[in-house]
């Protein structure tokens, strides 16, 4: 199997998935007609798609399904109609107290509001961001219910290291912490550590492969594109083309494949 066969195989799966036929005069169609392996591959993919289409997912009975949904809906607890807050003397008093506290705090120097005793700064808990005006309360004075119901504070914003390229942002933020490929495959990733152009411990081609496995072909194409701009070799160009094609960007894909074929001499 040569590089042309690899390019064609990639197209065959995409064509089968999109339900389109190859342009009969295209180079790929001419290759399939002449290459027994690729021809067999096309028949196998069509057979696979046909086999899948011949299975049927069962369907629930329409009447039973709807009846079950309405039963569940009717069993829902009725919404609790609460009295308006100003109709409750306790809440009214609490609101008045909160207003008084707000007025009192407004008299403090602008920027800092401290409820904890000023003599015990070491035991105060910071509830604001890492810098700037901060409101602090001591753990003892903080109501326990608040600790249970308030969601955890957002993580402190990362400090941008000098020299980190701004262009990394389109790819990196999508990565969830639990799926960090650097953590999953450290040896392979560290092999490209210290890449001068990326400033990252993870090579672009590895990001591409990671996103391709996740099915996010647009990000994969972006990452392979970056890898290809660093290292212009046929393998990266082919991966770039494959990811572009899977993401639906057929024009870029054809450019990349054409570049591969030119480099391959085929």
């Amino acid at each position: 199997m040569n590089l042309v066969c690899i390019c064609v195989r990639s197209r065959l799966a995409a064509l089968a998935a999109s339900g389109t036929e190859m342009e009969p005069t295209s180079w790929a169609a001419r290759h399939v007609a002449a290459c027994p392996d690729c021809s067999r591959e096309r028949r196998a993919l069509a057979s696979l798609a046909g086999g899948l289409a011949s299975t049927r997912l069962p369907e629930p009975d329409e009447q039973e399904f709807a009846a079950a949904v309405w039963r569940k809906i009717d069993a829902l607890p009725a919404p609790v109609h609460r009295a308006a807050w100003w109709q409750s003397p306790g809440l009214l008093a609490a609101a008045a107290g909160a207003c008084a506290l707000a007025l009192w705090m407004a008299r403090e120097p602008a920027g800092v509001g401290v409820i904890a005793p000023p003599r015990a700064p070491a035991s105060t808990t910071r509830v604001g961001g890492p810098a700037g005006p901060v409101a602090s309360i001591s753990p003892a004075s903080r109501p326990k219910a608040d600790l249970l119901t308030t969601p955890p504070a957002a993580p402190a914003p990362r400090v941008r290291k000098p020299g980190v390229a701004k262009e990394r942002t389109p790819v990196i933020p999508k990565l969830r912490p639990g799926l960090n490929p650097a953590a999953a495959r450290p040896r392979r990733m560290l092999a490209s550590a210290g890449s001068a152009t990326t400033g990252s411990t993870v090579a672009w081609s590895d990001w591409g492969s990671y996103y391709e496995q996740k099915g996010d072909y647009r990000s994969a194409a972006y990452a392979y594109g970056m890898a290809h701009s660093e290292k212009r070799d046929p393998t990266t160009a082919f991966a770039y083309g494959r990811a572009s094609e899977a993401s639906g960007d057929l024009a870029s894909a054809m450019d990349r494949y054409a570049a591969v074929l030119e480099q391959d001499g085929g």
Binding site: A13, A14, A16, A17, S18, R40, E41, R43, A44, L45, S47, L48, A49, G50, G51, S54, G215, D216, Y217, R218, A246, S247, G248, D249
Partner: peptide
Amino acid sequence: VPESTIIGRLAGGLKTLRRRFGGEGLI
């Protein structure tokens, strides 16, 4: 997700099945 993503996932699924299952002579 965009339709192109679905096409990519369908293609990826077909390729994986072809590798693991074969697929010839099903129909």
